[in-house]
Structure formats: C-alpha cells, structure tokens
C-alpha cells in the first residue's frame, strides 16, 4: 500500500515549517514508521541543517528530477533512525528548476517505499508552493498567533481548498500562554474562530527548539521540551490516534499527561 504524502506549508515565512517537518518526521520514525522528509525549498536549503545532516549531502532533489542521480542515491539516512530519510533541496538552483508534474511523480515514487512522505514547503504562494502541494494527500498549515501569519494562512487555505486536496489542518506554533493570559496574544481559539479549519497541533514557544536546532538535533528527543511533546502528539494525531490537546499553561499537569501517554517528561 502506498504511503501518505503530507505537505507542510504556511504562506508567511519563518513561522516554523522546517522545524515542524523535521520534528514530525522524527516523531513518526520514533513510532516505527518509514519516513521520507523532502526539502522543497529549492535555493534555500534548510531541512538538512535542522536535522544535522548537512555534511552528508551528495545529490539533491533537482539531481534526481533531472536524472543525474537515482532517488536511492540522493536519500540521506538519519543519524539515529535509518528508517528516516532526507531528500535535500538543491542550493544553487531556484524554484523553476522543477515543475509540479515532476514533484507529483517524485512523491508518488517515494510513497511506494515510505509510510509517510513529508514535504517542507517554501513560503509564499508561487511556483515553489505549487510544487510542494502537487503530490500531497494532505496539507498541514503552520501559523503563529499574529495578524500577518494568520492572514497568510487564510490565503493558503483558500488555495489548498481550490486545489481539491481535502481539508487542510492547522498547527499553531510559537504560542505564548503568558501573553495570551495578559490579553497580548491571540489565543488558539481566536485563530480557529478566524480560520475555521480543523486543528491538529498547538506548539508552544520553547527555547529548547533553538538549542536543539543549534546542535542539529530534533527537539522531540529532548524529554524536557514542551514543543517536543507537542510534535510527538501531532505525529500521533496524524496516525489517527485521538490525543487530547495539552493544557499549555500548566506544567504540573503536563508531566502527568506525558506519563500517561508514555512521552518522556517523567524525568522531571
């Protein structure tokens, strides 16, 4: 049976697409699935450094599409989970090096060998975005609780619905519970009121994301990271499990929940 192609996109840049792709991919691999993560941000390669695999790149996505390398040669195995593979973007080309049909074909091939194919989309609504959703079975939209990110997410939702890729689901990233309480950040419910799509994850702002990324490690390996736990939960929801949304602002309860679901935290 063919695997599932899931594209992570956002409209606005810098909201956390690459962080989400890397951590969701890793969390799915931890669950025992075969996962390919694809960097579709051609010219602005990033997923490799977030996963700490930048020194192993030989061939890239454009090499595969243009026939200079076979798919298997270009895939890079993760350091800890060999069932997790990265297909890196080309760094010296641009988004026009690949078209939507080629991307769709690439996704189809990857889906034959992997349970999940996660596509890290570039920002924007142009060719790069079009390519990134070309082979998708499902689209996840990442946003932050701020005006321009939500506005761009609304735009993307319209485009995804028009492309008949099914109902996209939302990840609200970089949520700051203290600011929400003070009335200085829109709550997840505010964002949902506006966008009116299904929620798949809420990821808190977490300094451990920066620290993990500095090291080229996924934050899902950090048992103390609330963001890491949130990514584990999104992975399980992607697998169809019914995982309750964590109460973001109550750390005491978090470890109780976390233990209940066997997701680290018990070390605290």
């Amino acid at each position: 049976m063919a695997g599932k192609v899931v594209t992570i996109t956002s409209g606005k840049g810098g909201v956390g697409k690459t962080t989400t792709t890397a951590n969701l991919g890793t969390a799915l691999a931890v669950q025992g699935l075969k996962v390919a993560v694809v960097d579709a941000d051609i010219g602005l390669r990033n997923l490799d450094v977030v996963l700490g695999l930048e020194n192993r790149i030989v061939y890239d996505l454009v090499d595969v599409v243009e026939g200079r390398a076979r798919l298997r040669q270009a895939l890079i195995k993760d350091k800890r989970y060999p069932e997790l593979c990265l297909l890196p973007a080309a760094q010296t080309r641009d988004k026009h090096a690949v078209n939507a049909d080629q991307m769709a074909e690439l996704c189809r091939q990857l889906a034959q060998d992997f349970d999940f194919v996660l596509i890290d989309s570039p920002a924007g609504i142009e060719q790069g975005f079009r390519n990134a959703i070309a082979g998708a079975n499902q689209v996840l939209i990442v946003t932050n609780p701020e005006v321009s990110a939500v506005r761009d997410a609304d735009r993307i939702i319209g485009l995804v619905e028009a492309a008949e890729l099914g109902a996209p689901r939302l990840i609200v990233n970089r949520v700051k519970p203290t600011m929400i309480k003070q009335g200085n950040m829109m709550s997840v419910q505010d964002v949902l009121d506006i966008l009116a799509i299904g929620l798949i994850g809420v990821v808190p702002e977490d300094e451990l994301v920066t620290i993990s990324t500095n090291r080229g490690e996924a934050v899902v390996f950090d048992n103390y990271s609330r963001a890491g736990l949130a990514f584990h939960n999104i992975a399980r929801r992607l697998l169809g499990q019914n995982v309750p949304f964590l109460p973001l602002e109550e750390p005491a309860k978090l470890s109780w929940f976390a233990r209940l679901f066997g997701l680290g935290e018990s070390k605290r």
């Binding site: 506005r151 003070q182 950040m185 829109m186 709550s187 505010d190």
Partner: peptide
Amino acid sequence: PVTSSGVAKERLQLALVYDR
C-alpha cells in the same frame, strides 16, 4: 476591544473580508 489581542482579532476579521 481593549486588549491588543482583541484588536488583532478584529483587524484580522476586517482584513479577511476584503481578502475573501
């Protein structure tokens, strides 16, 4: 709305009318 988050939400709702 008095809070800045309330202002943000209201501004978004108006901006999206035009966008949509």
